[in-house]
Simulated scan of single mutants.
Amino acid sequence: MKMNEGVEWALHSCVNLCWIPGETVTAKRLAAFYNLPTAYLNKQLQALARAGIMSSTSGPKGGFQLARQPENITLLDVVVAIDGAEDAFRCTEILKDGPGADPTADYRKTCLVASSMRRAELVYRRELAARTIADIVAEVEQTFPQTPENTRTWFANLKS
C-alpha cells in the first residue's frame, strides 16, 4: 500500500499547528518549514479544511489552523481526507475468469485473498483510528522536548 506523500505533509502540518494554537498560518509558511511546494501543500490543507480538520481563513491575516482539538483528530481522519475512504485493496473477482469458475459466485465474499486483504486493512484502519494528533504531539514533546519551542520560534521569525 502506498500513501500519497500529502498524507505525511498534512500530518506534520497538523502537529506543527498544535504548537502555535489560535494562530492562522498560511500554506506558504507551512510549506517553507519543510521546503515543500506551496501549491501542492495548499491542496492538502484545503482537503483537511473540507474534512473539518482545519479551518481556512482568507485575506491578509488568513491561513489555516486546526478546526478541532488535536485529541479529536485521528490519523485515519487525515489519511481519509487526503487519500479518500476507498479501500486500498479492491477485489475485481478475477476468479470468475479462472478455470472451474462459478459464474454465479460472489467472489468478493468467498475469495480467501480478498478476505485476507480486508482483515489486514481493518487492522491498519483500527490502528490509525486509535492514534490522534495529540498522541503524536505528546510523543514528540517527550522525545524531543525542544521541538515545540523551536517550532514556535521558527514561525515567529519567518517573514511573511
Rank of each mutant, 00 (worst) to 15 (best):
K2W: 08
N4I: 04
N4F: 06
E5S: 03
A10F: 10
A10Q: 11
L11S: 02
H12E: 15
H12A: 10
C14A: 14
V15A: 09
C18W: 02
W19S: 05
T24F: 14
V25R: 15
V25C: 15
A27H: 08
A27I: 07
A27N: 05
R29K: 15
A31K: 01
A32R: 06
A32T: 02
Y34M: 13
Y34I: 07
Y34W: 13
N35H: 07
L36F: 02
L36A: 01
T38K: 15
A39S: 14
L41G: 06
K43D: 14
K43R: 15
K43P: 09
Q44T: 10
A47C: 03
A47V: 05
L48A: 05
L48D: 03
A49N: 07
R50L: 01
R50I: 00
A51M: 08
A51C: 05
G52V: 04
G52A: 06
G52P: 08
G52W: 03
I53R: 03
I53Y: 02
I53L: 11
S55Q: 13
S56M: 05
S56W: 08
T57Y: 04
S58W: 07
S58K: 12
G59I: 11
P60S: 11
K61H: 06
K61V: 02
G63A: 01
F64R: 04
F64Q: 04
F64W: 05
Q65E: 09
Q69A: 01
Q69I: 00
Q69S: 06
E71Y: 07
I82P: 09
I82V: 14
E86I: 12
D87K: 14
F89A: 14
F89R: 10
R90C: 05
E93L: 07
K96P: 07
D97I: 09
D97Y: 13
G98I: 12
G98C: 14
G98K: 14
G100R: 09
D102G: 11
P103N: 12
T104F: 09
A105I: 09
D106K: 08
T110I: 12
T110N: 01
T110A: 02
C111W: 06
V113L: 12
V113S: 11
V113E: 10
A114F: 07
S115N: 12
S115M: 10
S115E: 15
V123L: 13
Y124N: 13
Y124M: 13
E127V: 03
E127P: 01
A129I: 01
R131V: 02
I133N: 00
A134H: 00
A134N: 00
D135K: 06
D135Y: 05
D135Q: 03
I136V: 11
V137W: 01
V137T: 05
A138E: 03
E141C: 11
Q142D: 06
Q142E: 05
Q142M: 11
T143Q: 11
P145G: 00
Q146I: 01
T151E: 02
R152M: 02
T153V: 06
T153S: 09
W154L: 10
F155L: 06
A156P: 10
N157G: 12
L158C: 13
